[in-house]
Amino acid sequence: MYAQMVESEASNDDPDKLAEFQARIDADIKIEPKDWMPQAYRKTLIRQIGQHAHSEIVGQLPEGNWITRAPTLERKAILLAKVQDEAGHGLYLYCAAETLGVSRDEITEMLLDGRMKYSSIFNYPTLNWADIGAVGWLVDGAAIMNQVPLQRTSFGPYSRAMIRICKEESFHQRQGYDAIRKMAEGTPEQRKMAQDAMNRLWYPSLMMFGPSDKDSVHSAQSMAWKIKINTNDELRQKFVDQTVPQAEYLGLTIPDPDLRWNEERGHYDYTDPDWSEFFDVIKGNGPCNVDRLAARNKAWDDGKWVRDGLLAHARKKQAGNLAAE
């Protein structure tokens, strides 16, 4: 969901090796970087972990936008810590991707020139402080839904990154809920802002889980390989079921007139997001796609002299040490 619509690849590896590989996965034995793996498993994972990492990094932008304008010093410190965590999560994931043979620069450049995607959610703006609460509560809440099962994914480095991330992610959701609760329990104007944030971010949050199962063409192979654990619709349903009571507690209305408890299914019935909007955002036409990529490119270009300078310094020092020996 931080990785949406990851294309899987066809395998044309030796059938015996493939069967042995699948048997290891079925037996819940982790695949490690130096183990044999099908080319398609490697490529699909690079794409999926890369997309996940990029989402963590780009995800800093909508929240970083509000650090300087947080309403109190405490909220500012909390948001700063949260955004710093997102950078950390991106780094854990980039390292996991690199164990598959892609270099950090390569994968970064693929984000910067648009060859790789990040989650559609970060192409929506954060217009005011209520949005920051809603992002933590809904967006991180949706992320957790997907990340908890991924702790059991078959690729060792990915699984270990996920375990670290999940340990920290609960803080993100709780600080968001706490921030929006403050507003929902505040003045009529604050209440209105909280409801407005909910109205705008509800459907984009549901989109995070990717297209509906009937349109999700890449799932079967990824699920057999245990790099995807649940289907998109399963996770979306779980998210809706979890979130409705949380919204009720706040007295906020979920912007879906058809949302109701279905006794027979034991789940809430809900309206799917507008999938044409989703595909449009994925294609690059969301409200913030251009800004997000421009900000990442600027950061990369502006940082070049620092990266080069530190490397030149390190090489010079190393040469000096060798000469002294």
């Binding site: 854990y92 390292c95 690199e98 950090r104 990266r307 530190l310 490397l311």
Partner: peptide, 12 residues
């Protein structure tokens, strides 16, 4: 072992 990262030298 907890993971890895990129840096120009040991100090960084």
């Amino acid at each position: 072992h907890v993971g890895s990262l990129h840096a120009p030298d040991a100090e960084m």
